[in-house]
């Protein structure tokens, strides 16, 4: 079993450095929200974050050495999970609140104005609560994010060509590095990994919700967010 070349400490250091900067929504938020105005603010913020996410992914050691097809597959599978994990991290010290950005903070009740979103807010708050309970550390947060990115497509399809096989092997070695970085506390690693299935679940719910809002013309989805949403929903339908 081939061991990764980079030490866990160096790996963590590199992914910490890859962290994207804080983003602000930079909108004049007129409260109370309407369904359309809240969805518009959420999607505007998501589009900005997605651009930074691509730069972040390219800084994850080994990511750009994967095939371009794999890079695309991974990002289109996991983008909403990554956005949501970031949201949970920003909200971890703010019980009952979702800190989308420093200038865009929502209470659970504010979700009432968008049909179907409160259920998703509740799931996000519950997962955030769990991270608070576990006293999630920054090193663990960045490792989890890298894990979500690298793991997102692992079980979706089997490699067919030699290039695909090589890329998959590189991916597995990268995942070894991430796990290596966290493995010093195996029980904790277990608890943190168990949360990944909840994050995937809330991301799937969120994706369905966003597709519905787009289909009903509640919100106009454009640019990179549109590409990622279409990519994600077309591959599951």
């Amino acid at each position: 079993h081939h061991r990764s070349a980079m030490s866990p400490e160096e790996f963590i250091s590199r992914i910490m450095e890859a962290e994207p900067p804080e983003i602000y929504l930079m909108e004049d938020l007129k409260k109370p929200f309407t369904e359309a105005s809240m969805m518009m603010s959420l999607t505007n913020l998501a589009d900005k974050e997605l651009v930074l996410m691509i730069s972040w992914a390219k800084k994850i050691p080994g990511f750009v050495e994967l095939s371009l097809a794999d890079q695309i597959h991974l990002l289109k599978c996991c983008w909403l999970e990554i956005l949501m994990l970031g949201l949970m991290w920003r909200s971890v010290d703010h019980p009952g609140k979702l800190i989308f950005s420093p200038d865009f903070k929502l209470n659970r009740e504010e979700g009432q104005c968008v049909e179907g979103i409160m259920e998703i807010f509740d799931m996000l708050l519950a997962a955030t609560s769990r991270f608070r309970e576990l006293k999630l550390q920054r090193e663990e947060y960045v490792c989890l994010k890298a894990m979500i990115l690298l793991n997102s497509n692992l079980c979706s399809s089997s490699p067919q060509t030699a290039e695909e096989l090589e890329s998959r092997n590189k991916l597995l070695r990268l995942l070894d590095s991430v796990i290596d970085a966290l493995v010093w506390q195996t029980l904790r690693l277990g608890h943190l990994t168990m949360l990944l299935s909840h994050i995937r679940h809330v991301s799937n719910k969120g994706m369905d919700h966003l597709s519905t809002m787009k289909r009903k013309n509640v919100v106009l989805v454009y640019d990179l967010l549109l590409e990622m949403l279409d990519a994600s929903t077309s591959s599951t339908s």
């Binding site: 651009v51 890079q71 695309i72 289109k76 990179l224």
Partner: peptide
Amino acid sequence: HTKLLQLLTTKPE
């Protein structure tokens, strides 16, 4: 995936 591809293949500044 035109925008995604563009962002993935552009060299960083």
